[in-house]
Amino acid sequence: MNRASLVFAALLLVAIPLSLFAGRVWIDPASTPNAALIVAELRLPRALLAIVVGAGLGAAGAAMQGYLRNPLADPGLFGIAPGGALGAVIALWFGYAASAWLLPLFALGGAAGAMALLAAIAGRTGGIALFTLAGLMVASLAGALTALAISMAPNAFAMSQIVLWLNGALTDRSWREVWLAAPLVLLGIAALWHAGRSLNALTLGEPVARSLGIDTTRLLWLLVAGIGLTVGAGVAVAGIIGFVGLIVPHLVRPLTDRRPSQLIVPSALAGALLVLVADSVVRVLPLVTELRLGIALSLLGAPFFLGLLLRMRKGTI
């Protein structure tokens, strides 16, 4: 375990109990009635879900930046998150979301569909540029179909459900979502971790990586599977939560020797920390309706992204 992993694991251990007590109602274990029940059935699954979703997004972001050799890359570029969102929107459109399992399953189906489409377009060649463009195309198609679904929503309720859901959140989630997402995200992080060494070779470009014996097509599919599982499962249980995958690797990188392989696990821990803290903050904010987590992270992410661009312009990245 490297230094960055230790730092973020330690911070996470501090943040978890804080997040269990924080909320619209602060829990004092000694005096709050039903404290154990609230923590066990509401706060704990929500905290675990924040950790699972954040870990997946963080690891996916680190792998994506390593693969594209670009610090501005985001896992959303593969079109898997928009694909998952489209699946969920379809479930909401037809009212299937009334059954608790169907919405996440549709979202997973959408993410899988985006992966299949990527495979059909760019599968054989394995070239990075073609693949990125194919991902952008899938993302833009899924975005257009989502917009179409919103504009043709059968009723105002469905429309508001869709719009709300698209601004990801962890409100009113239960153990069911944790059990659905956690195994998939863990499997995805394992795939990305496994890809780490090959990502190191890509530091010197694709031809050098291949000359070092890396099978770049296999690497590509390992990444698609890893990002599909982490991001797809995240979207399925929490909706669209942007910027985590972009921001987190930048927080982690200065604590490592900057090899992509050294970023995957600490980025998972830092992503978990970021989403857990952000979700605790939106619960505590004294607003009439709770600020959606996806919106909060985007509000945080946009200026961060601007800062990155400015630093890049100065040539310090």
């Binding site: 390593g66 050799r69 670009n70 060494r197 190191n200 070779a201 890509l202 530091t203 010197l204 470009g205 070092l212 014996g213 890396i214 020797d257 900057r258 090899r259 992509p260």
Partner: peptide
């Protein structure tokens, strides 16, 4: 060189 890794780490890639 995509990432600002130490020289030794870069040379070590040759052992891959």
């Amino acid at each position: 060189v995509a990432w600002d890794v130490p020289v030794r780490t870069l040379v070590q890639l040759g052992r891959m």
